[in-house]
Every structure is written in C-alpha cells, then in structure tokens.
Amino acid sequence: MDPAIWEACKRGDKDAYACIYRLYYPRLFNYGCRFTADAALVEDGIQEIFVHFWTNREKMVAVRELKSYLFVSFRHHLLKLLAQHKKLQEDMPEAVEDAFALEISAEQQRVAVEEQQEQLLLLRSAMQRLTPRQREAIFFRFYENMGYEEIAGILDISVKATYKLVARAIALLRETYHSAPLMKALLTLTAMAAALGSMQLSLFICSSRLPGSL
C-alpha cells in the first residue's frame, strides 16, 4: 500500500481510511469465514477492530505493521466473539479454535485430467488431516503470501516454531503425492470401518428392543 495513504489516514483523512478499509475488509472477511459460517459475526468483528484502529491510528508506527496489526487484532477479537457466542447458545459442539477450515478449490483447476483430479482429492483429504493451526499457517503462507515473522506475530508463537509448523504441514501435504496407492487402501479401510460401525449400531438397537418384544 502507498505510504502516502497511510500518512493521510493518520492525519484523519476519512477517504484514506476508506481506502484501507476497502483493501482489508475482503481479506479479513475471507479469513474470518474459515472460523465460522456466521457472516454477521465476522462482520461485527471487523467493524469493531476497524473502529478501534481509527481511534488509535495516531499511536501506530509504520505502514509495514498495518497488515499484521489488522490480522492479529481481528483474530483475537473474532475468537473472543465466537467464545461469547458459544456460551450464549450451548448447542455449538466444536471448540472455537479447532474450527479453522481450509479447502482446496476445484474451480480454478482448469485441467480436468483424471490423474490430476485424483491428486486434487488426495490433497483435499490431506488438508483435512492437518491440525487447525497447521492449516492456518498454510493459509497465511500460501494464500496471504506472508513471511515467517508476520505469521509468527499473528499466531503468537516464535519464528522458529513457525518455520517448523509450516515445514511439518508441507511435509504432510506432500506425503499424499508419494503414497497415493497407500492412501486409497486407507480410504477403503475407513469406509469399511464406517460400515462396521453402523452394523454394530443396528445390532445394538436389535438387542435393546428384544426385552420389549418379549
């Protein structure tokens, strides 16, 4: 972003502020939607941190820090809102921090070669096996194209730990490329296990009904 816009915003120029808002609102929104499907809540979070940003703009130092600042405060605030929300309606089962969803998109993969489709599916299922934190690191690294120091700042961990986190996630994702046949076998096994599970369930129902029918 143009440092002049930042300077103007600091001086209280609302047009410059609007520029910054238009630039970051879609990115923060896209990021927030990975924690929850509640778009209204995501918007609330963004609105509040932007208001806070405006009232504290004079204290901010450099434009370089702006992106990190917005992501850090938005992440913090959204997780707080989600925790409150969860308390209000206790029927939300999953923990807030465990919800970061990252999906590989098929739409942009124009080549519909069967082999690549298969690889895409594998990559998708591999993504699901990452921890939410690994997924978040991958998102910042390969979607937001952020450096390790920036990611470390947002996730509130050391730079060294960030390198490890990203490297581990890459290794896990890349394993799918090498172990495709094994993966298939694993998937079949999972399907079989699922089938077995449902059989046990129906058996259980049968036996629990027996005393009643006697």
């Binding site: 879609p26 896209n30 939607c33 990975r34 590989i104 739409e107 942009q108 690889q119 390969f142 979607y143």
Partner: peptide, 13 residues
C-alpha cells in the same frame, strides 16, 4: 507445481 496447485476456496464479499 505444488505451490501452483494450492488454490484455496475463497469467501469474498
């Protein structure tokens, strides 16, 4: 190829 293959689903307003 790996980096170029990573396209994530977006939810942009």
């Amino acid at each position: 190829a790996f980096i170029e293959g990573l396209h994530f689903k977006e939810t942009l307003p």
